[in-house]
Design a protein around this nucleic acid. Sequence first.
DNA 1: CAGTAATTTCAGGAATTTCTGAAATCAACT
DNA 2: AGTTGATTTCAGAAATTCCTGAAATTACTG
Lengths: 191, 191
Amino acid sequence: MKLTDLQQEFVLHFGEMGSRWGINRTVGQIYAVLFLSAEPLHAEQIVERVGCSRSNVSMALKELQSWNLVRLKHLPDDRRDYFTTPADLWEIVRTLVAERKKREIDPTLTKLRELQWREPDTDADAHAHARIAELGTLIELLVGWYEDMDRLETARLVQLFALGARIQKFVGDAEAVVPRLKGRRSAAREG
Amino acid sequence: MKLTDLQQEFVLHFGEMGSRWGINRTVGQIYAVLFLSAEPLHAEQIVERVGCSRSNVSMALKELQSWNLVRLKHLPDDRRDYFTTPADLWEIVRTLVAERKKREIDPTLTKLRELQWREPDTDADAHAHARIAELGTLIELLVGWYEDMDRLETARLVQLFALGARIQKFVGDAEAVVPRLKGRRSAAREG
DNA sequence: CAGTAATTTCAGGAATTTCTGAAATCAACT
DNA sequence: AGTTGATTTCAGAAATTCCTGAAATTACTG
């Protein structure tokens, strides 16, 4: 089956965006095809739709699997591998964020912590050392927030995002009632 | 001036991470050098520190400027361009998120909206069309939340991130008092 | 305007990434 | 074990990205 114009355009767009998203064109296109398809697809069907070589599809699927972005399925009496993307878009978002964090943030956080152990050698190092520490603290704050959010049920997550800045109002109110909220942070997190 | 071991290691790390972050090694290294430096640096000083060609530094700085990640300074009686990164890390985070959104999200959102106009051609298209619409809605929700957050003062932002999941408690409470919060969303956003 | 210092541009070479077809591997069935 | 069909691996070709040195440009100075 060939793609409709609508689908074609979506697929080509994902291919073009691929490089900005840190994946290559084929991977982007294949993901798009799977994302749009109502049915799981096997490799040969993907070849038809994106028009690249069979081996390229194989490699791209491996890449998508390493990102946990596709699921492998099997049909009865058919030994081919079929692939899909999750129906739930929030699951996709969670996966995407988790994987990007793992690849783009975690190695740096590890390195920053490692560098913080070092005593600053020289005077000029003092500033650099402080800067590294500050960056580490900031990233830890953001990662901690993310981990908190990731634990929430999707319904709750949607609610918070939909609230947007109006969340502030509640926090402001609550702070008046429960002062020194910040001080309680680490204790509360451990629970 | 050569870099200390501490600085060298940080700079090399940023160079290596560059490809995962969608920038090249030189750009990553130069950013790292500027980030650590207590003083603004001119191009020749950067060449000394990262050990690449003068022209490469020029191109990399242009790239960093296109990301708004560096600031240009001038010293009295010195016509060279000096570069720094903002002292405030939250400003850096804001810039980074804004630029990544601009490059990685906005073009796709535009495309999705464009494709939603199209009538689904065939039956198979119906599913694809629905999927595209769903994705558009999700991204709009996330972008709306981001824009809301971006309007907040940094102190407020830090407060919210530090709260993490405990924010939920307040929202839950508030909902009991002000029901049908969701329905009020669009009206409130326009304010 | 000539001279000088700083920066930018750019053609082409180096390095890296992506893609392909052929061969190898794997797994189910006889 | 042998056959068939699906998938993976991999060496090298193709494409892309990155980097350099030389030349051009910009902008200040005397």
